[in-house]
Amino acid sequence: MPYVTVATQANQPVDLYYEVQGTGKPVVLIHGWPLSGRAWEKQVPALVDAGFQVITYDRRGFGESSKPWEGYDYDTLAQDLKALMDALDLQDATIIGHSMGGGEVARYLGQYGSERVSKAVLSSAVPPYLFKADDNPDGGMQEEDVKKFLDGVSGDRIAFLNDFTKDFFTPKDGKLLVSKPLRLYNREIAAFASPKATYECVKSFSYTDFREDLKAFDVPTLVIHGDADAIVPIEVSGQRSHDMIADSQLHIVEGGPHGINVTHAKEFNRVLIDFLKA
């Protein structure tokens, strides 16, 4: 199994598990919370068939990667992404982040620039800034919302994840758009993540301000978001990111919940591949 060591903590290596499939221009897929690289199952074959090299990896604390006690802030997570891209010597890459993974895309470009990157994609992503603050009145998360997540994860985590995966694949005011076995599969992926990582990442995606990072975007960017996303509503995230990124295009998936790469995979893949080939 391929791993890359990205850091050392408590005298132990922090290793990221990754997979590389196909050949061609590289596409790096960064999964959302609280899943793993397996979340991109519907995208990998479509991208390989379209002539791209596809790199998936598990964020630290999730999937098959190391589960250190610390390092779940976005500066560290973006540093992990950089270490992976440097180790694989990726050039002319597209970096694609879903949900929490969109934060890594934003912070990577904000901190390290686009030397290795030619395009970016924000999919149901958390930028520009989820938390509703005095200087961010358009944010969607308030303190009680964050507390609900943290209490759920620190309490009966599996029950919380069971409900969360329902919301993940259910449009606002709609019905679950995937089968029960598929939903439970995603619950199991989330269940075996580090509880500490699952908890700490809630604070990271809730409280991190990416507005300055978005100003650094100097590559063509696709923002793709469902208009019925009940977890990260488009009006507080995708639409605002599109408005802030000069060279960006917005594709709205009608009736799309948070997990549009699964529930609307054909539309998602078509729009994504058209963007990559443009």
Results as ranks from 00 to 15, higher is better:
residue 95 I to A: 04
residue 71 G to Y: 09
residue 74 Y to N: 01
residue 63 G to W: 08
residue 184 L to V: 14
residue 269 N to S: 08
residue 160 F to H: 07
residue 160 F to T: 10
residue 41 E to A: 13
residue 178 V to Q: 03
residue 249 Q to K: 14
residue 23 T to N: 10
residue 46 A to N: 10
residue 68 P to L: 04
residue 110 G to K: 02
residue 167 D to H: 12
residue 234 I to E: 10
residue 92 D to W: 02
residue 158 I to T: 13
residue 216 A to D: 00
residue 99 S to A: 06
residue 63 G to K: 07
residue 167 D to R: 14
residue 254 E to M: 11
residue 145 D to L: 03
residue 63 G to C: 07
residue 191 A to H: 13
residue 195 P to C: 07
residue 29 L to V: 00
residue 43 Q to G: 06
residue 187 R to P: 04
residue 183 R to C: 02
residue 76 T to M: 07
residue 226 G to I: 03
residue 168 F to H: 04
residue 190 A to V: 10
residue 154 S to T: 14
residue 276 L to C: 00
residue 32 G to D: 11
residue 69 W to N: 11
residue 69 W to F: 11
residue 100 M to C: 12
residue 267 E to D: 10
residue 85 M to K: 05
residue 44 V to R: 01
residue 120 A to D: 02
residue 273 I to V: 01
residue 108 Y to E: 06
residue 9 Q to V: 13
residue 127 P to C: 08
residue 136 N to Q: 07
residue 224 I to L: 08
residue 226 G to S: 02
residue 21 Q to N: 15
residue 235 E to W: 11
residue 53 Q to N: 04
residue 70 E to Y: 15
residue 171 P to A: 02
residue 200 E to Y: 05
residue 214 L to I: 01
residue 87 A to G: 14
residue 230 A to D: 11
residue 63 G to E: 05
residue 138 D to V: 05
residue 201 C to E: 15
residue 38 R to W: 05
residue 174 G to F: 05
residue 264 H to G: 04
residue 130 L to H: 04
residue 83 A to Q: 12
residue 5 T to N: 08
residue 34 P to H: 03
residue 183 R to T: 04
residue 31 H to I: 04
residue 73 D to G: 12
residue 178 V to F: 03
residue 241 S to F: 00
residue 214 L to W: 00
residue 70 E to W: 13
residue 247 D to E: 15
residue 227 D to R: 13
residue 77 L to N: 07
residue 54 V to P: 08
residue 228 A to Y: 01
residue 80 D to Q: 10
residue 209 D to G: 10
